[in-house]
Nucleic acid binder design. Sequence first.
DNA 1: GAGACGTGGAC
DNA 2: TGTCCAAGTCT
Length: 356
Amino acid sequence: MIAKTTQPPEAARLLAWYDRHHRDLPWRVSPPMRARGIKADPYHVWLSEVMLQQTTVTAVKPYFAKFLALWPTVSDLAAAPTEAVMAAWAGLGYYARARNLKKCAEAVDRDHGGRFPETEAALKSLPGIGDYTAAAVAAIAFDEQAAVMDGNVERVISRYYAISEPLPGSKPAMKAKVAALTPAERPGDFAQAMMDLGATICTPKRPACALCPFRAECRALGESDPELFPVKAAKKDKPVRRAAAFVACSPQGRILLRRRPETGLLGGMTEVPVTHFTSRRDGETSPDAAPFPAAWQPRGTVIHVFTHFELRLDVYGAETPETPLADGWWEPLANLDAQALPSVMKKAIEAAMSRV
DNA sequence: GAGACGTGGAC
DNA sequence: TGTCCAAGTCT
């Protein structure tokens, strides 16, 4: 006889809130569907979780739809050319995710017969799957009682318990709190409910505490100010770097592109020739560093903000014959949409094409 | 464990 | 306008 599982009162209250107020999302199986026996597709859960890392739901939706249309199963993704995956990911950012996405799909296809492993520990050993994603996929797709903690959960927990220790030092203690709250029944819905609560009620600014199922017990609300949580270490200011980009356009309507190294910033993505991103913010760039001599014309400066520095990219343009080059290729302008061009490179090309 | 790693939207 | 950020992972 199995003892009836007890669950924390917080879990029951949150699940009741979730049943009424959950968001409908393309990768999600809602509570009514789950009640009818519909299960979440591990491939959909994993794909969405990786895309959602540090990325908004709004930004992810069209990419999620595109990936499923191109590669309906994880084995399809494993068989896809890496370049096609990078091109499809272009614009979403954090491109190591796309490189690891492909590696992970290959590992699942090759080592696990095209089925995702079902435990948190096994999932975490796969490329691009860390603490959060392993727990999320295990809980949501496989009903494992895994403690899922992301930025939303950190915010909810830090407020509920009024945790004054700053992040990231407070993470282990918060993870223990989440583990204690996570129920054996519906652990996946519990995780998604915590994240929905953080995204729609317990927001970073101006939280809607009046609508919160935890308003009566929340220590930050009762004793302090929820907006003061979570406490975080002070940020460092962003250095400015400078570089030059060279957009060469041929009379045949093609531009010179090349591929960046596999690792590091924008790793494996396509670019127009650019100089090294120097840390000196002052000092003009010049066409001397261009891939070949041409009548380079300044076409303005693109400002692009990365996570850890701001780039001032001086753009030069020239109309030139299609010089054969060891490094790079000439791509028709009409095909640019199919390239793995990150946003900063699209901005540079756009600047070069528009008449000043 | 601190830094590297994108982007576009909100206030 | 500048700041903060959005379902983190890897080294």
